[in-house]
């Protein structure tokens, strides 16, 4: 450590700033590479890699398209950092600090996932949205969307308990008039009081139960 009282990389002793200047063509090449990678990543996104490997996975819901896209993005980011931002020629510490910040962001994501992803792994009652034995949906959650179970204007049959539209009009024309009627109906369906509602819940929540079990 001796002798590094200033950790500047002294390029010369005159105290003035000296840098290596790249050619314009160099920057154009980097840009060309970035454009190529952009086109390439858009092209691969039309490819249903998830579906090919594990048939039935909705396009984009698996992990492989995601990994490929992230790998390409990381390449592009590396191009920008190294050459456009001159990290290659810059002081080492700057690169270290910047990369360090990305690592900390990674720690942030990894540790948080370590919680949210594994919540119900040890105990099936822990952290689930649907009670695995009764099928009851956890109160205080999505079921209460909007507070008063407001029916979206274009929904024909709204399930208040699930906070979800059971039957949906994609191109509706002025369904506001129905709102009052639908509302009452849905409410009556959703809240027949205590045990009744619970007994009914498993059927309505079957899909969710399955979804929860999958995790």
């Amino acid at each position: 450590m001796s002798g590094d009282s200033h950790d500047h990389d002294h390029h010369s002793n005159d105290g003035a700033v000296h840098v290596h200047v790249h050619d314009v063509s160099f920057y154009l090449k980097v840009f060309g590479g970035l454009i190529f990678l952009t086109v390439f990543t858009v092209a691969t996104s039309y490819l249903d890699i998830d579906g090919l490997v594990r048939p039935g996975t909705p396009h984009g819901a698996g992990g492989l398209n995601f990994l490929l896209a992230m790998a390409i993005a990381t390449c592009k980011a590396a191009f920008v950092c190294t050459w456009f931002m001159h990290l290659k020629d810059d002081a080492r510490f700057n690169a270290l600090f910047f990369v360090g910040s990305v690592l900390f962001a990674g720690v942030f994501l990894a540790y948080t996932l370590n919680d949210t992803y594994y919540r119900q792994h040890e105990d099936r009652y822990q952290g689930v949205h649907v009670d695995p034995s009764t099928g009851e949906r956890a109160p205080g959650g999505l079921a209460d969307i909007g507070g008063s179970c407001e029916v979206p204007a274009n929904c024909v049959s709204y399930n208040c308990e699930a906070g979800r539209c059971a039957e949906f009009v994609v191109h509706h024309e002025g369904g506001e008039g129905h709102e009052g009627g639908e509302h009452g109906e849905a409410a009556a369906e959703g809240h027949e009081g205590g045990e009744g509602a619970e007994a009914e819940a498993p059927a309505a929540e079957g899909e969710h139960g399955a979804e929860a079990a999958e995790h």
């Binding site: 105990d123 009652y125 949205h129 009670d131």
Partner: peptide, 8 residues
């Protein structure tokens, strides 16, 4: 106890 999910 967390709204929107069960704890045990």
């Amino acid at each position: 106890l967390v709204p929107g999910m069960f704890t045990s």
